[in-house]
Amino acid sequence: MIEFHLDARSGVPTYLQLVQQVRQAVRLGILRPGDQLPTVKEVVSALAINPNTVLKAYRELDLAGLVEGRRGVGTFVSSELTPSPPDGVKELRSALQRWVGRARAAGLDDENMAALFADTVRPPAASRAA
């Protein structure tokens, strides 16, 4: 069992904080397949948050195949999070290193690069609004 906590100042929506904490716990092996997540009522009591928010988080985890809701019983971890394959990461890292080299040559400092990276990674506003 895990306990959720909320960071009101993070700007991350509450349901997403719950999703991230479950994913993190599974990744770290704190939660294993078959383990039960806190019930909606328990989360609501502990954090004084809207039950619909908890349901939304659990639904999203369910859709991602990470947990499984069993009617009238609870929500259980159904699979492990497979870490990204090491080969892929290695290749991506070297591609990124080449990119950083080119960016430096073009006169970008670290802060410029970080801003550019963050800006590229961030999905466009309207597609999330849909």
């Binding site: 909606v40 009522k41 609501v44 004084a48 039950p51 619909n52």
Partner: peptide, 12 residues
């Protein structure tokens, strides 16, 4: 916080 918690429990 306690009041809102009571309301949320009732909703749940």
């Amino acid at each position: 916080r306690e009041f809102l918690q009571s309301v949320m429990e009732a909703v749940a």
